[in-house]
Write a protein that binds this DNA or RNA. Structure first.
Lengths: 111, 111
DNA sequence: CAGTATCCTGTTAGATACTG
DNA sequence: CAGTATCTAACAGGATACTG
């Protein structure tokens, strides 16, 4: 979330879902609501700091809903809103594309 | 292009098209091949440095083709490959989503 | 369990000036 | 026209330790 005055829809969408983690978190929540710890295990490699940071942003975007259950031990569940689901749906073709070309992508020399 | 061993297709796709500019450059080239200067005008706000840098990466990914016409003054045309077109197609729903929700997105308080 | 708080590093990106 | 080169600021992200 950095700009105003987007030049096209893709510009706006990339601004919302951009960065290393948001699309993956969205994807993980597609199937069912998850607790913080479950989510962490569902997104391999993410640190607790990045996870909570991205979740907070996605909450302010209205993509994710945070539900606190006052128990001991604490239980917090994250789920997609309708808005979040609509974004996830829009990401499906991109995910399919990536899956289809994963081998090609991995074979590209890094640098 | 940073990792190997993607966990899902979206992971791989975000790695290829991620960052601030690549999706926009891809989008601009969707309609027709463009020269460097035309491309710069088509992607408002991009610096020459970022444009050439992103184009080079996209060339190594095989998304973009660079055609040099040996003339004075020089003329270099950039176009999408078939691979680039396939990625662009996969981005259409995301672009539509962004367009549809642009007002909502702009209204979110920045942080 | 579900976070916070700090510190630290590498990358991204902007500004500016210059070239074949 | 189509780039290169250099410098610097900003930010994303990682490591580690601590808390209600």
């Amino acid at each position: 979330m950095k700009k105003q005055g987007y030049t096209c829809g893709l510009d706006a969408a990339v601004d919302v879902v951009g960065g290393k983690w948001k699309a993956l978190i969205l994807w993980a929540l597609h199937y069912a609501p998850l607790r913080f710890g479950e989510l962490k295990r569902s997104v391999p490699g993410i640190s607790e700091k990045m996870l909570i940071q991205q979740l907070r942003e996605m909450e302010t975007y209205g993509l994710v809903h945070r539900e606190v259950h006052h128990q001991v031990p604490p239980k917090v569940e994250y789920s997609l809103t309708e808005f979040g689901h609509s974004l996830n749906t829009a990401l499906i073709p991109l995910g399919d594309w990536g899956e289809k070309h994963m081998r090609t992508i991995e074979a590209i020399p890094r640098g």
